[in-house]
Design a protein around this nucleic acid. Structure first.
Lengths: 150, 150
DNA sequence: CACGAATACTTCAGTACCTGAAACAACCAT
DNA sequence: ATGGTTGTTTCAGGTACTGAAGTATTCGTG
């Protein structure tokens, strides 16, 4: 628990912090917007995006989404009602229900992904070196052990 | 609305995109967590942070938060019940109610800001040059996409 | 000045999201 | 077999959000 008092904050650090805040706000906004275009809420879009990669038991979904399993039930209910997701029994354990995106669900998820032009387009304007540098900086910010130094 | 088919995506670009997604998720998570430590929801924390800078009419708050004014009513209600925000009449226009953070509200907002160690600490580990470079890259990401659609 | 339109806020359904507790079924260890 | 644990759902309770309707105030114009 670092209870430091931040005696003063470097103005550059503050600006970068602010820029990150803007990126976060912008990203979120774009995401919700893209979801809305497909008649989905943000939570539904996140869940569908997750399941479009691979089917997952409800409990795993809750872990990935960092929420309670009881919450997942409702979101899957609504997606299932729209035919975008289905519940399958797990042959190995009859307690678990595996949530999986339907073909239609995967189609919608792809469309969703393609709607997220926000970061892709500006990124295309950066040179390869700049992208590399951005990647490394972001990696360090996230605390990831850099594995592919280049 | 660029409905391009993304003929191919540079793997580096994809990784950077992914990292940005992680930053966004992390930032959000930290924000909600910091808010929860002060017994606030994310929406309440955002509103309080806004009002800690300057008092604003309800209508302006809704604009800043990009939501309906009727929504702001409820959030301000709850913050007001906790004594963190108050409604003041606008002497110039009796229709208008100005929402303002109380002294206690400003105190909580400051604590909230200081709890957001996520980006500050990793940033402190970057050299001045690296921070400059990160700032410039983020600026370009945000500024190169002038989104004045209307 | 009066009167209708516009503006600011609130109230009121209606929906979604989210949590925590309790119920239920199925698994597992003894 | 029994009892504890695990996976899912149901339920109650609360926040967030929208859109429509309602109230009060301001403003524009005849």
């Amino acid at each position: 628990m670092a209870a430091q008092k931040t005696p003063r904050m470097d103005p550059l650090t503050m600006e970068v912090l602010d820029l990150i805040g803007s990126v976060v706000a912008r990203f979120h906004e774009e995401y919700e917007e893209a979801a809305a275009e497909h008649a989905l809420t943000g939570a539904q879009a996140r869940l569908l995006g997750l399941l479009s990669l691979e089917p997952l038991p409800m409990r795993r979904v809750a872990q990935k989404l960092k929420c309670e399993p009881s919450n997942v039930t409702g979101i899957v209910d609504r997606l299932e009602a729209r035919g975008l997701v289905e519940r399958r029994p797990d042959p190995a354990d009859r307690r678990v229900k595996v949530a999986a995106a339907t073909a239609e669900g995967r189609r919608v998820a792809r469309g969703l992904r393609e709607s997220l032009d926000f970061a892709r387009e500006p990124l295309a304007g950066l040179s390869h070196e700049e992208q590399l540098s951005l990647r490394n900086l972001l990696r360090r910010m996230l605390g990831d052990a850099p594995q592919n130094e280049e």
